[in-house]
Design a binder for these strands. Structure first.
Length: 584
RNA sequence: CGGGGCAUGGCUCAGCCUGGUAGAGCGCUCGGUUCGGGACCGAGAGGUCGGAGGUUCGAAUCCUCUUGCCCCGACCA
């Protein structure tokens, strides 16, 4: 391809609404154009990278026994009503009506459609298991699209679904997909981690997310330094402490007074008595969050969450511990009227009508402080087991970097930021039961199929690849998905000699099936071409100029290592041939 | 949906406070000189200042309403 005919325009300036690196570089290199919030056009260069990644995904999935199909982007409401999601799915589902006033939506995912396809096709255990996938545009009307392709509303996704006769076989396939995903992300050449994640509302199932490690990632991940336990912070387990029981301390009500001091950290410093001349250490303080809980029968109740003063409350873990449907902070005014005090001095002691979940870290502890439910005062000697009537225990605080691993004896947690690019999920019977996706087993009995689903964000992964592979000059494409492998710069596009060399080279490259882009733009200074080449980030740059040709030399530069090789023009073709062989 | 901000040529922005001829840099076109890390000179094209209403002799500028977009918190590939 010749750049003079190529649809793109590089920019020196960073578009003002591009926040993260991948978005900035895609905009600056002219690969991406926003049409509406979270909706983008892909220019030829970006599309090539997307297609390369897609074909890696296809190859690996087909190797693992999956088959590709394609389902409609526009879906009728009937199926969604049948699965129960027409009502359950929030505003992310873009709904609209056709001319006959029938309800439709743009597919954010395809469980309903694929389940319908399979139930109409498969009747016998002999036809199972089956694993199908598609690479397709999805639309989710995200609350807040951002970061370019990292969180668009319209995006390309590979979604796959498997159907099985029983749990055992579904689990087998789950791990088959898990290994396939590892191969895919290894092959594309990204640093990634499979991460244990929260399975959300679908109880009893398990799930892994695949995260590409990048500072701009929206998820916090903790990984053990010793074993392979890696999890989303939302879910990371904390090691229960096993400290020796302490001698009980009597509850001294309203023992500490800290008038006018806001915030637990400052309050702790001012909780001074003869035993605590320096104040109470943060580890001996506790804090209370009053929360409104909705259970799965939509019954509302108020729960207090008690955790150590040094920790953060983890809403996902609390939600799971209580088997709640939703959980949100109690309105401040309600909380104040319930406790008869200001925020900052609320405590669990004496709140008879509230049920409490107390963090396991506090188990067996005594001599703690807690809010006195009287503005400006804290109790001392708080002992959860003794002082709270309606007590439940749970692991409800955020794990932190440096904490001991919950799974092994030796390790400590390290923290990362991750971009979620894939997920494997065991769906179980969530769709097959309501949608009656059944088969006849060996004894002729009708049974629901057990399902799994497996997603990879195609466009998001390409963004993540740039996020992880760039420098101050621009993109550094991993060879696996680089739009082209060689970028040939004709520094003197109007010079007959260099152009002749390039034309020869072009014939050779075409015959060998080697991918290349030629910068043949005339009246552009060499510096501008170098800058653009760095920005576009193709793996190898071949510079051909009249200066070099005088000595019979051309230059090959590796974008990543910046290593420069000056080689005689006669050897150019064989050198390119050898480099090309190193690619996949 | 709450909180904050922005909207002026393809891009980045100035002008607005204090109403009176719509500007700069980059990009684009033409001519010339350059040519190995974003060259220079000259001449051009391109904007109903997001939209609607109002105040005024006069509105990019002041007022009201609206739309779009971005950023910070609850969703997910």
């Amino acid at each position: 391809m010749r750049q003079s005919k190529f649809l793109f325009q590089t920019h020196r300036e960073i578009p003002k609404d591009a926040e993260v690196i991948s978005h900035q570089l895609m905009m600056r290199s002219g690969m991406l154009l926003k049409l509406s919030s979270g909706v983008y056009s892909y220019f030829p260069l970006l599309l090539r990278a997307i297609k390369k990644f897609e074909s890696i995904v296809r190859e690996e999935l087909e190797k693992s026994g999956c088959q590709e199909l394609l389902m409609p982007f526009v879906q009728p409401s009937d199926l969604w009503i049948e699965s129960g999601r027409w009502g359950a799915y929030g505003k992310e589902l873009l709904r609209f009506k056709d001319r006959k006033d029938n309800d439709f939506c743009l597919g954010p995912t395809h469980e309903e459609v694929v389940t319908d396809m399979v139930r109409k096709t498969i009747k016998s255990y002999k036809q199972l298991p089956i694993n199908v996938f598609q690479v397709q545009t999805k639309f989710r009307d995200e609350i807040r699209p951002r970061f370019g392709l990292q969180r668009g509303r319209e995006f390309i996704m590979k979604d796959g679904y498997s159907f099985h006769v029983d749990d055992t076989d579904c689990d087998r396939e789950y791990w088959n997909m898990f290994e396939t995903y590892k191969r895919i992300f290894t092959r594309i050449g990204l640093a990634f981690r499979p991460v244990e994640a929260d399975s959300g509302a679908i109880g009893g199932s398990f799930t892994h997310e695949f995260h590409v490690l990048a500072d701009s990632g929206e998820d916090a991940i903790l990984s053990c330094s010793h074993c392979d336990y890696t999890s989303n912070l939302e879910k990371t387990e904390c090691r229960p402490i096993s400290s020796a029981p302490e001698a009980p301390v009597a509850l001294k009500q309203c023992h500490f007074s800290t008038p006018g001091i806001v915030g637990l950290v400052d309050q702790a410093h001012h909780m001074v008595d003869t035993d605590h001349p320096q104040g109470v250490p943060l580890e001996k303080t506790t804090k209370l969050y009053l929360m409104k809980i909705l259970d799965y029968s939509d019954k509302e109740s108020i729960w207090g969450a008690v955790i150590g003063g040094a920790y953060e409350l983890n809403l996902v873990k609390m939600k799971n511990a209580l088997q709640a449907k939703s959980i949100e902070p109690l309105d401040l005014k309600l909380a104040e009227s319930l406790t008869q005090c200001k925020s900052g001095f609320m405590g669990p002691v004496g709140l008879e009508k509230v049920k409490f979940i107390v963090d396991l870290k506090l188990k067996g502890q005594t001599g703690l402080t807690c809010g006195a439910n009287k503005t400006d005062f804290h109790h001392f000697g708080f002992t959860p087991d003794r002082d709270i009537k309606n007590i439940h225990w749970g692991d409800i605080h955020n794990a932190e970097a440096g904490d001991r691993c919950a799974r092994c004896e030796a390790g400590k947690y390290l923290s990362f930021r991750g971009i979620e690019v894939g997920q494997v999920f065991k769906l179980g019977l969530k769709y097959s039961l309501p949608m009656k996706c059944n088969f006849l087993d060996m004894s002729g009995k009708e049974k629901p199929m057990v399902m799994g689903c497996y997603g990879i964000g195609i466009t998001r992964t390409v963004a993540a690849a740039i996020e992880q592979n760039h420098d101050e000059d621009g993109i550094i494409w991993p060879e696996s998905i680089a739009p082209y492998h060689f970028h040939i710069l004709n520094l003197d596009a109007d010079n007959a000699e260099t152009s002749a060399v390039i034309e020869d080279l072009e014939v050779f490259l075409r015959n060998e099936g080697i991918e290349f882009l030629i910068d043949d733009r005339s009246a552009l200074s060499p510096g501008a071409k170098f800058k653009d080449a760095d920005l576009l980030g193709l793996p190898y740059r071949i510079t051909i100029g009249s200066k070099g040709l005088k000595d019979g030399l051309v230059e090959i530069r590796n974008r990543k290592t910046k290593d420069v090789l000056k080689i005689p023009i006669k050897e150019l073709q064989s050198v390119i041939y050898d480099i090309n062989k190193t690619f996949d």
